[in-house]
C-alpha cells in the first residue's frame, strides 16, 4: 500500500496484531460501541454488538446499500436516538448526548446528502466550522473589538484549508453556486475547521471526479498525519483499498467482518453480503471503475 507517512506506518503496524474478527478489540480505541440497536418498525436498521475504532487510523465502514451505515453514524453523533446501546468516545460515555455536544467533544461528521449552506459565502461556511468563537455569543457579537483578532486567525486558517481543497477561487461565492463535488469538498474542509479528533465522513467521494479523488485521498491521509482519526463510509472499493488501514463491514445492521482491506475483500461472507444485495452489479455505486469480479 502506498499509504506512507509516519502515522500510517504506526497505525498499520499496530493493527497488524489485531484479530480479524467482527468486534475485535483495538490496542488504543478512540471509539467503542456496544450493543447499539436502532429499529424502524420491524426492521433493525442497526444492530451492532461491539465495535472499536483505533486512534490515529483511517477506518473504512463499508456495506451494501441500506446496511445501516448512515443510521449508525446518526446514532453515534446524536442525530438519532438508539433503542438500546452505549458507546464511548475517548473513554467518555456518549449515550443520549445532543449532537452539538458530540461535535464539541471532537467527533465531527459530514452528511451523505451534502449540507452546504447555500446562501452563505464559501468562506463563511468555513468560518462557521471554527470552535470556541467569542463573537458567537449574543452580547459579544455587538462589540467587534472582542472577536476581531480571533476572526482574523480563523480566516487565515480557513484560507489555508480552502487552498488545500482547491476552493480558494470560490472564496467569496455563495456556496449554493458550487457544483456537487465542490460541495463535498467544502463540507469536508468545513468539518476540518473545527479541528476534530475523530472525523466521520459519509461517502466523501460520491460525486467527486476521478482527478479530484486522488487529491482528496491525499487530504484524508494528511488528516491522519496531523493526528486525527478518520472513520469513513465509502462504496468505491478501490479507494477503500487505497487509503484505509482497517475496514469494518456492515450488512443488515450488523458488523459481519473486520480486518485490513486486503483480507476483508477476500472474506467470503463479505462477498456474499454484497452479492446478496447487488446480484451481478459492481461494488462501486457508480459502477465506473470496477466490476465485482476484479475487486474481490
Amino acid at each position: 500500500m502506498p499509504a506512507n507517512g509516519q502515522r500510517a506506518l504506526e497505525a498499520q503496524a499496530v493493527l497488524a496484531g489485531v484479530p480479524k474478527v467482527p468486534g475485535a478489540p483495538k490496542p488504543d480505541p478512540i471509539l467503542v460501541a456496544s450493543s447499539v440497536v436502532r429499529r424502524f418498525g420491524g426492521l433493525s436498521a442497526v444492530d451492532v454488538e461491539h465495535v472499536e475504532v483505533q486512534r490515529g487510523s483511517i477506518t473504512a465502514l463499508i456495506g451494501p446499500n441500506g446496511a445501516g451505515k448512515t443510521t449508525f453514524f446518526n446514532l453515534l453523533t446524536g442525530f438519532d436516538a438508539p433503542d438500546e446501546g452505549t458507546w464511548s468516545f475517548n473513554g467518555r460515555s456518549m449515550g443520549r448526548l445532543s449532537p452539538y455536544r458530540v461535535a464539541r467533544l471532537g467527533m465531527v461528521r459530514t452528511f451523505q446528502l451534502t449540507k452546504a449552506l447555500n446562501r452563505l459565502r464559501v468562506i463563511d461556511n468555513m468560518l462557521l466550522g471554527a470552535k470556541g468563537q467569542r463573537g458567537e455569543h449574543l452580547w459579544a457579537s455587538l462589540l467587534p473589538f472582542l472577536w476581531r483578532r480571533q476572526e482574523a486567525n480563523n480566516t487565515e486558517r480557513a484560507d489555508l484549508l480552502l487552498k488545500r481543497f482547491s476552493l480558494d477561487a470560490k472564496r467569496t461565492d455563495f456556496a449554493g453556486s458550487l457544483s456537487g463535488g465542490q460541495r463535498k469538498l467544502l463540507e469536508m474542509a468545513r468539518a476540518l475547521m473545527s479541528e476534530p479528533e475523530l472525523i466521520m465522513l459519509d461517502e466523501p467521494m460520491a460525486g467527486v471526479n476521478p482527478a479530484l479523488t486522488q487529491s482528496l485521498l491525499q487530504h484524508i491521509k494528511m488528516i491522519r498525519e496531523e493526528g486525527a482519526t478518520v472513520l469513513f463510509v465509502e462504496h468505491d472499493m478501490d479507494m477503500v483499498h487505497d487509503i484505509s488501514d482497517w475496514v469494518i463491514v456492515m450488512a443488515q445492521g450488523q458488523i459481519i467482518a473486520e480486518g485490513p482491506p486486503g483480507d476483508v475483500m477476500k472474506n467470503p461472507e463479505v462477498i456474499d453480503a454484497y452479492l446478496g444485495a447487488h446480484h451481478e452489479r459492481a461494488l462501486t455505486e457508480s459502477g465506473e471503475s470496477l466490476t465485482t469480479g476484479d475487486t474481490i
Binding site: A103, K115, L117, L128, L138
Partner: peptide
C-alpha cells in the same frame, strides 16, 4: 452589527440547514 458578526453567521447557517450547523458544534 449582529448579522455581520459570527453570531449572525450562525443564525444564517441555521436558516440554510440547521443540522449542518449543529454538526459543527453550535447549539
Amino acid at each position: 452589527l449582529l448579522v455581520r458578526s459570527p453570531w449572525g453567521r450562525v443564525v444564517k447557517g441555521i436558516r440554510e440547514d440547521e443540522n449542518a450547523v449543529v454538526s459543527l458544534g453550535k447549539n
